[in-house]
Design a binder for these strands. Structure first.
Lengths: 227, 227
DNA sequence: GGCTCGCTTCGTCCCGCGGCGAAGCGTCGG
DNA sequence: CCGACGCTTCGCCGCGGGACGAAGCGAGCC
């Protein structure tokens, strides 16, 4: 009656954060990187359907922005201001901003995106191959050339029987956690599978995150992948 | 499981503001003045019992502090930081900090505290009387002296029949909206009643707020009350 | 002492919202 | 073209929490 509007705006904003699942989502995105809906569902500890509703609500309120890529939908904080607000609230909440959890770090470091490699590792691998002129880059397709073949063969990632890789298309795909390109498509998929088969990478139970074994570190160093 | 604590802290904090009634309370206190529980209940538009629960919750969370005076309990924002957080949120919410409502201004300007005058008017009147040496100030009692009697008689606030005012005790009482002293006790009550009877002040329906009539402005100016 | 009055506590009701499973839609790989 | 997969929509359930009235408590006035 008196003062009609403001209290509801503030209440609405507070309600956005009032739910632990939504709070977890926002906190996870505080590093201003993007994550697909399913990953955020896992982080929040709720079913996909539930997370979807939360994400929609946050996006409608303008806290999150969303961009579709393939069958994924990547969510991120809408802008820097949002991150700033949340951080301010963390101080008020009344605890310090917590260090990112170890699980988060791992996830950022290496994870499979669909079936190929993403995260820091995916980006670093792509950079390395491109830097070594191991790739022929087309408009939207990528192929491994003879340079690349010998490079990978030395590392043991591909063997004689894999000669077919030369014919495989790859595609570049921006990694929303790193905002940089990495390798997808059949070529990317094959490389990821090889790394898992060779136990360079160890899949974690259920999640998309992968751990890097000692052997993997060694192989990557030999390959010249810098990260 | 993973990251056990922070999300709940943030959610809990958000929940404090998520309720329109609580948001209204916090907004009303944003000027860092104190208000009694009943007034906040009116502002929030809820019953006293409901408001009491909200106030308790806000106080338990450390957002509000409370101090009892007589049968009133005055609530205010716990400290400057809280005010700052809320203001930051107002920006995020995502509207500008609204101008104080007209109703709020009136309430601050003049209101009855229990039965005597408080607000700016109560404080100004007390200052004027003290400045004119119209009061004999004891340790915790105050009396109107001959100076004061003639001053008030000139203004028409007291008349022949009110000679008894000289015998009335007054008490000083800090006004939590202005953080300054004003006049309470039987003397303060009588003056307030006279001002209402003489229609210097017009009571508003239901609330403790009073409006000042043209006649009141005139009389106060004649009295030398500066405000 | 007895009354009024401001506030809190208690008991109760009920609505809103978060939770999930199932189904629908669009994309990708083969 | 088919199946797998990621995400959203739909429908239903259950519970937490906000609403109020009545009663209890303490302070102030006469």
């Amino acid at each position: 009656m008196d003062e009609p509007v403001t209290r509801h705006q503030l209440a609405e904003f507070g309600a956005l954060l009032a739910e632990p699942a939504r709070a977890a989502i926002v906190l996870a995105l505080l590093d201003s990187r993007a994550r697909p809906a399913g990953e955020l569902a896992t982080i929040a500890g709720v079913a996909a359907a539930t997370a979807s509703a939360h994400l929609k609500r946050l996006a409608d309120a303008g806290l999150l922005s969303v961009v579709g890529q393939g069958r994924h939908r990547y969510y991120r904080l809408a802008d820097e201001d949002v991150a700033h607000w949340i951080e301010t609230l963390m101080l008020a909440a009344p605890r310090r901003i917590k260090e990112r959890s170890i699980a988060d770090r791992d996830l950022a470091a290496a994870r499979t995106c669909y079936k190929h490699l993403a995260g820091k590792l995916g980006v670093a691998l792509f950079d390395r191959l491109r830097g070594a002129h191991a790739l022929d880059l087309g408009s939207d397709a990528v192929r491994l050339n003879r340079n690349g073949e010998s490079l990978l063969r030395e590392s043991g990632l591909i063997v004689e029987g894999d000669a077919a890789v030369l014919g495989l298309d790859g595609r570049t795909c921006v990694d929303w956690t790193e905002r940089r390109f990495h390798l997808s498509g059949p070529l990317g998929t094959l490389l990821a599978r090889r790394m898992l088969d060779e136990r360079w990478l160890l899949r974690r139970n259920g999640t998309r995150a992968v751990g890097i074994s000692a052997r993997g570190h060694e192989g990557l160093r030999a390959l010249g992948v810098d990260w």
